[in-house]
């Protein structure tokens, strides 16, 4: 068998697809593309074609299928690269200051939830010989740190990092791309037992350092936001029972809603003056002082209860009463769980 590497075959497929304006039928592609040529037509070749389309999609190359009216045999369907996938190389050229900023922007995701996309983006940007950003520092030419050297580069001053704490992230993104619904066990803040959720995944939102999934919860029949960190099972995906399309502004709408909750939800706390809690809560975004109390904003009463519990005796919740109760319950659970000299859970 004339074995052509997948990479070479996919590149040949792309070349064929960008060269046509009317598109090629599958049969035409099988005859024309190196790697398909000479292979027996059948399930194996069809599967190879599907895999190659998926691989191109990962690079942002979406293949459009045009079905002639009245034809359902799929034999006459024409494949071509979606308009707008290709643009001018000049669109991806940036000046020195922009390159510096992009380098930093890419660095944020070195180990984080958007690592794959940022690496792919970096590869596209490096088509410009002037662009050297987005590589780990130790692999960046001329970027080894020199203690007596000139002014340190921005990238060595600022080390942004978003770690891949949320293992569900990749699975959710992949499902969202392929418009498949996802099923996972979710431990809602404040609850002790996870519940299975079925969701049409729309978008990922990073809010106050936490990644969240926004989607349509099929059980609740409404839009819901899930903390990725609280997805406690592997994410399974399956064909959507109802085909769905993420709203174009899903991410920004969700972010605006979270900002709104944050602006209106607050807790009044006494913090021991000068304590760690006092300093950190004062530095927290939007904290204000009122009648000797710190007014602390949050997006979820259970999450802020957890955070306040972590400050122990440095803080006491003044209002609302419900919030005081949530912190008290947590402290009682901690006290009771640690009452015996040896852990109940010890083996």
């Amino acid at each position: 068998m004339n074995r052509v590497e997948a990479e070479e075959r996919q590149f040949s497929l792309l070349l064929a697809l960008v060269d046509t304006s009317v598109g090629f039928t599958k049969h035409e592609l099988f005859v024309r593309v190196a790697g398909y040529q000479g292979q027996p037509v059948g399930d194996a070749l069809e599967r190879m074609f599907e895999r190659d389309k998926d691989a191109l999609r990962e690079h942002g190359i979406v293949i459009d299928v045009v079905q002639p009216p009245g034809d359902d045999s799929n034999q006459e369907a024409r494949y071509r690269v979606l308009d707008g996938v290709l643009g001018s190389p000049a669109e991806l050229q940036f000046d020195a200051e922009e390159r510096d900023l992009l380098d930093l922007a890419l660095r944020v995701w070195h180990e984080g939830g958007l690592t794959e996309e940022s690496q792919r983006a970096a590869l596209k940007l490096r088509a410009d010989p002037e662009f050297r950003g987005g590589l780990p520092l130790e692999r960046t030419p001329g970027r080894t740190s020199d203690p007596d050297g000139a002014e340190p580069a921005t990238a060595s001053i600022l080390q942004p990092r978003q770690r891949p704490r949320e293992s569900a992230f990749q699975a959710l993104k992949r499902a969202a791309d392929r418009r498949r619904e996802v099923v996972f066990d979710y431990l809602k803040p404040g609850e002790r037992t996870p519940r299975s959720r079925t969701v049409q995944p729309w978008a990922a939102v990073l809010f106050r350092g936490r990644w969240m999934l926004v989607g349509h919860d099929l059980g609740a029949e409404d839009t819901r936001t899930f903390l990725m960190q609280r997805i406690v099972s592997p994410v399974k995906d399956r064909a959507a029972k109802q085909p769905f399309e993420a709203p174009g502004d899903a991410a920004t709408t969700a972010l605006a809603k979270l900002e709104e909750i944050w602006a209106t939800a607050s807790v009044g706390v006494h913090a021991l003056p000068g304590s760690d809690a006092d300093i950190r809560l004062r530095h927290r975004r939007d904290t204000s002082e009122e009648d000797g109390l710190l007014v602390v904003h949050h997006a979820d009463r259970h999450l802020i209860a957890d955070e306040l519990t972590g400050f122990g005796s440095d803080v006491a919740v003044a209002w609302p009463a419900e919030q005081r109760e949530l912190v008290r319950q947590r402290l009682e659970r901690i006290r009771d769980a640690h009452a015996e000299a040896t852990g109940e859970a010890a083996s």
């Binding site: 960008v18 690079h59 942002g60 190359i61 707008g84 996938v85 290709l86 643009g87 001018s88 190389p89 669109e91 991806l92 900023l101 992009l102 930093l104 922007a105 890419l106 660095r107 944020v108 995701w109 958007l114 996309e117 940022s118 792919r120 983006a121 596209k124 088509a127 942004p160 993104k173 791309d177 990073l206 991410a251």
Partner: peptide
């Protein structure tokens, strides 16, 4: 004189990082 553009998610990653 043409090239593959950034995918929406690649652009999002850059914009989010920025």
């Amino acid at each position: 004189d043409e090239t593959v553009r950034l995918s929406p998610r690649e652009a999002s990653a850059l914009i989010a990082g920025l």
